[in-house]
Write a protein that binds this DNA or RNA. Structure first.
Lengths: 335, 335
DNA sequence: ATGAAAGCGCTAACAG
DNA sequence: CTGTTAGCGCTTTCAT
């Protein structure tokens, strides 16, 4: 039932003024040329009494809250988790904390969570924006802030039509790489598999793939783009079109695995080369040959946090777009 | 470049005192019998001027911060993500926010993050505690708080030797169920597979399995407990011991899949019944028959948050332990 | 039903 | 090198 110990408690029992204590604890001892012995005395006393500066009092007049917000479009899975990990890694050894929220791919909920964070005055926000059903357009109105000193934010993982900082994966290049690889190894009939979800990463991956093939003079009839059902399974009506495919690029690894299996079982394909961003736990156990591009989630998170901190600290207003490549590709041979 | 609008701004342009405005915004209008028309006037004005009460000023003298902390032992994956989702679901429509941190299975880091949250005065904390290498004991000193009104916390997922609230999975029962099922279907040689990680969930699952078998009179020679390598692969030296196994329980689904495959490929087993908590994306594609018990992560998170809120609001000091079962088991037939 | 005033714990001029 | 004095924006007696 000890009383709470504040700056005043310390200042009194040290026989100095509160300002001295405040200065010491805000790391301004040097700047104010505080006597070494005074500082030591205060520090010792604080330690002894178990003093902890009050976070709220501090933030109240400094308008720095040392918390940054993360808003994720959906439930955190291992990709989003790795982004979080990267952010946290960058934040270690700073005073910063992460406040996180998810918004179930709803721009409206996204807005609500954003508002909430602005209200709580997070110093900056990282946002992995909602993806919508095919055809719908991501609204950006909620991202505009009319304040003189707007809260900086960084968009991660998905490009949106709004001027901002971005940390993205090399989506287009991933598709391009897949196409090149297929072309180099003599494949003839190509499939690109995606999901019925509107977002830049899906779009750009597929685009990188198909454009590269087309530039190489592949006949459009030999490039099939298939949009899967939401549960990753192929649409029945696409089965025939996919017949004889010998090279398949998918927007992510689980989709690739699912497709390859289903098509093989249906007898629509025999052997197949696969290519996809992402990694699944058991791909090495599966009867599938393919190349997987691990997603640099951790690095993306780190970079996003780094940009954010820079903006917060330096007040820098320029926007930057950073595209990160995959680490070493992982090649799986059919067993 | 609008000036910030505070209680004072409102009170002035409404021609009332700041206290009135404060009362209205703290939902104490009734209690103070504030005139309907005054309230309406203030509310209208606030709306018009875009007033938002200042979170820090509020928390400064109320000691309620409306944030709850989550500390996870490791990088958030889909299980931990589902816990987060559950917590968030419970918190929706409250004022509460989540602050999250991970601690890389290090009790020391765990302590640091905990302290940080206490410093920031989160109203409550949910902690998924660190698991240690086999043989080490989880230290609990950092969890003790000597304050008069300690910050309530709930431990989730893993039991630790500390008096507290717990929200756990029915670990023992999962092992027991597997054993029963194997016995009922006439299996003869049993394996229990675990990881070299010290935590209650692993321990209890295995215990539930082996104890049930022993009680049923199974000879100990027919119950092999195998501790995998940290990368999920079987120890070379365990291969012979596992020869002829026809029923395998593993502490989680990915371990089961990995073991089943490796053993089958090594020719150590032929057909096998498997049982494990968890779900993997491709188990239905794998040549494996087994029963999987989906983890109730979301429900666990929800319950933990619910208990926490109750403690925060009611000040209730009793401890409770909640064990949650798996939802409907998922049965996979070899293809 | 409303107001005045004291403070929550800390910071930031402005004096010395 | 140190102290004094105002606040930050809100809540909360205590009056009226």
């Amino acid at each position: 039932m000890k009383k709470k110990v504040t700056i005043k408690t310390i200042s009194e029992s040290a026989g100095v003024s509160p300002s001295i204590v405040s200065r010491i604890f805000s790391g301004k001892a040097k700047q104010y040329r505080i006597a070494q012995k005074t500082e030591r005395k205060v520090l010792a006393l604080a330690e002894k009494l178990g003093y902890r500066p009050n976070y709220f009092a501090k933030s109240l007049n400094s308008t720095q809250t040392f918390s940054i917000g993360l808003i994720f479009a959906n439930t955190v899975d291992s990709f989003l988790g790795s982004i979080m990990e990267g952010v946290e890694a960058r934040l270690r050894d700073t005073e910063y904390q992460m406040v996180v929220a998810t918004c179930d791919n709803s721009p409206e909920l996204e807005r609500v969570e954003l508002e909430r964070m602005l209200y709580r005055q997070t110093d900056g926000i990282i946002i992995y924006p909602s993806a919508l059903p095919l055809g719908e357009v991501y609204p950006t109105a909620h991202l505009a802030q009319q304040k003189a000193k707007p809260t900086p934010f960084v968009v991660i993982g998905r490009e949106i039509p709004f001027e901002s900082d971005f940390v993205l994966f090399s989506d287009y290049e991933a598709g391009e790489l897949a196409a090149r690889n297929f072309l180099d190894t003599g494949c003839r009939k190509f499939a690109a598999v995606t999901l019925p979800i509107e977002c830049s990463s899906n779009r750009d991956r597929i685009k990188g793939f198909t454009e590269t093939l087309e530039k190489a003079g592949i006949d459009k009839n030999n490039i099939v783009v298939s949009v899967a059902n939401p549960d990753n399974s192929p649409k029945r009506s696409d089965l025939k079109k996919l017949e004889g495919t010998d090279a398949m690029f998918a927007i992510n690894s689980s989709l690739l695995v699912e497709f390859a299996h289903t098509l093989a079982k249906a007898g629509v394909i025999s052997s197949l080369k696969g290519y996809a961003p992402g990694m699944e736990s058991f791909q090495h156990l599966l009867p599938l040959s393919g190349t997987f591009l691990p997603m640099p989630g951790r690095e993306m998170g780190w970079q996003a946090a780094d940009i954010l901190l820079d903006k917060i600290i330096s007040g820098n207003r320029d926007f930057m777009v950073k595209r990160l490549d995959w680490p070493e590709p992982v090649i799986i041979q059919a067993t």
